[in-house]
């Protein structure tokens, strides 16, 4: 499975493909060219991701997250 992968640093960035809308915000802000986005398929390129979190902040629908406990996710009000 190509989907959830990034593990270059201590943290893991997780894109939830079944919730993703494939809009491309994350790709636009990714400084490492570490996200592959096809018509309806998305995954992080393991070897490039540095866990910088910019994709998490830019995601309009909160489907990119760190998947470890204790790591700040978006403070969702609703």
């Amino acid at each position: 499975m190509q989907y959830r992968q990034a593990k270059t640093g201590k943290l893991l960035i997780d894109i939830l493909p079944n919730k993703c809308d494939f809009c491309g915000c994350c790709v636009g802000v990714c400084p490492e060219d570490a996200i592959e986005l096809k018509e309806a398929e998305i995954y992080i390129i393991d070897s490039r991701c540095t866990n910088c979190s910019k994709c998490i902040w830019a995601c309009p629908i909160e489907v990119i997250k760190f998947d470890k406990e204790g790591v700040p996710e978006k403070q969702v009000n609703k």
Partner: peptide, 12 residues
């Protein structure tokens, strides 16, 4: 903006 999105998402 992404700066706002850091705290709360567009969807929300």
């Amino acid at each position: 903006s992404g700066g706002i999105g850091k705290k709360r998402s567009a969807l929300s």
